[in-house]
């Protein structure tokens, strides 16, 4: 079965991204497919590579990047939500005249259409948020 996942809260502030990560891992471990993980609202902040969590805590962004690499997951950050919150890839930084990008490996920035497309293509859409 194909799952589409929405993460709509930021890391550390809210448990949502941890719950989503656990769900995705369990889905993959039980033979299901995760067609896309879409990060919306403050969820886009999961995808910054500039966070430095304390070493004795879980490394949320690194966990997602590693999982994406291992399973070729499609981690999509909503462009509209990302622009509001200062999450950029190099392409967006160039286009907007900003001096840096901060997107982590394994994430990509794209439009809200990717959320709707995910809802159409996935068998089940599940949101982890507040």
């Amino acid at each position: 079965m194909k799952f589409g996942i929405v993460v709509s809260e930021g890391p550390y502030t809210h448990q949502a991204s941890d719950s989503a990560y656990n769900f995705v891992k369990a889905a993959l471990a039980t033979g299901h497919e995760v067609s896309r993980v879409f990060f919306y609202h403050d969820g886009v902040n999961v995808g910054t590579r500039l966070s430095i969590p304390p070493q004795d805590d879980r490394q949320i962004q690194e966990q997602w990047s590693a999982l994406a690499k291992e399973h070729e997951l499609d981690l999509v950050i909503c462009i509209a939500a990302a622009q509001r919150r200062g999450l950029l890839d190099q392409n967006e930084a160039d286009r907007q005249g900003k001096d840096a990008n901060n997107i982590a490996e394994g994430f990509r920035i794209s439009g809200l259409g990717q959320l709707i497309e995910m809802g159409i293509q996935a068998d089940r859409t599940i949101t982890f948020g507040d």
Partner: peptide, 16 residues
């Protein structure tokens, strides 16, 4: 912000 960003999804979703 949830209500406002929900509306943005609805507007984009309408094209589908």
């Amino acid at each position: 912000i949830y209500a406002q960003e929900a509306l943005e999804v609805v507007l984009i979703g309408a094209a589908f």
